[in-house]
Amino acid sequence: MLAIIASTIVISCKKNDTEPAPNPNLTGSLEVEFENFVGTQKFAFGTTYTNPNTNETFTPSMLRYFITNIELKASNGTIFTVPQNDSYFLIDQEKPESLKFTLNSIPEGDYNEISFTIGVDSLRNTKPVGERTGNLDISGTAQGMYWSWNSGYIFVKFEGSSPQSTAVDQKYRYHIGGFGGYSSKTINCVRKKTLSFGKDVAKVRTNAAPTVHLITDVMKLFNGSTQLKIADNNTVMFSPFGINIANNYVDMFSYDHVHND
């Protein structure tokens, strides 16, 4: 009888022990997952959506964007910067595996804020080709996300068709980039976003890898500080108007929830 009580106590103690204070000398992983939406509807190729602000309809056929230079902030204020070489991700709706990525070697902690860059910073944009491997490889993952005539990555690529487009093929094409220029100043569409998890925390532990779930609402690419109308601008690439779209796309991202398991 006593033995049972004793063992119960041991077990309950153990239970408490499974959630010890994070030990910053230990490291764990965190998964970040993006889910693309159009307004309140899930994003799907071939589906036609209506923009309530403009009554324009559009059917997306491509959505890609760079999420890079990630930082995590713990509730005690500590900031963890993902090492630069491992901090470039291309979210591509066409490749489901790209919608999720894992960050490793994160000090144990209770994280409640994530920051990232939309686009590719000027430093990396001007590095030798040999230092642009992995998700930045122009002949690999990043194929089609680079302007070879005007050296620089395309940060966000969103294409589809729309009856409102006056292009011959009735398509709309938004290829937004521009890191500020190499020897002369030019447009800068690199944007930084910080998202708080509110009261939630992602508990990173050696043996627990939480998932942070973020939402990207591409409707906000149209509806932001600038009202983008397909009828007026069916194609925006390297042009000053790209800045307006960048100012819109920075607000596409929101925090949804976290899984601690």
């Binding site: 030798p128 122009i138 680079y146 070879s148 005539w149 005007n150 050296s151 190499y182 020897s183």
Partner: peptide
């Protein structure tokens, strides 16, 4: 127009 700033990047164009 000087659009490419590194000879190593040139051939892509």
């Amino acid at each position: 127009d000087g659009g490419v700033f590194d000879l190593d990047l040139f051939a892509l164009a």
